[in-house]
Amino acid sequence: MEAYYAEIRLVHLGAVLMSGTLFFLRGFAVTVFKAAWPHWAPVRYLTYTVDTILLTAALMLTTVVHQYPFIDAWLTMKVVLLVVYVGLGTYALKRGKTQNIRLGAFLAALAVFAFIASVARAHNPLGIFSTL
C-alpha cells in the first residue's frame, strides 16, 4: 500500500477540496439567496459520494502512515472536529430555524473546516496555533 501513498494522498486532498467547495457553495446559496438547489437530490448524492471517497482515502492513509485517531493526537483532533463540522453543517443547510442561526452555523462550520485543514498541515492538534 505504501507504493500508492502519493496517489491516495492526492485523492484525499482532492476530495477535501471538493467537499469544502461544495459545502461553501451550498451554504452560501442557502444562507444568502435562500436557494433550493442545494437540497436537490443530485447535489446531495454528489456530496455523499465525495465525502465517502474522502473518508475512504483518509482511512487508507492512516494504515499507510501507521498513525491513527485516538492514538495520535492530531488525528483525534481531526475526527472530533469533523463531528463538530458535520453538526454545524446540518444546522447551516437544514436544521437552523432562522436565517441568522443558519448563517452563524455556516460561518462557524467554515472556520472549523479551515482549522481541520491547518491541523492536517501541521500534524499537530493545535493546528495553526501551534506556531504561536
Partner: peptide, 17 residues
C-alpha cells in the same frame, strides 16, 4: 502485492453505504 490492499479498500465506500 500493493494492488491487493488497494482493491480491498475499494469496498469501503460500498460497505459504508
Amino acid at each position: 502485492q500493493p494492488f491487493v490492499p488497494l482493491l480491498i479498500w475499494m469496498r469501503v465506500p460500498g460497505d459504508v453505504i
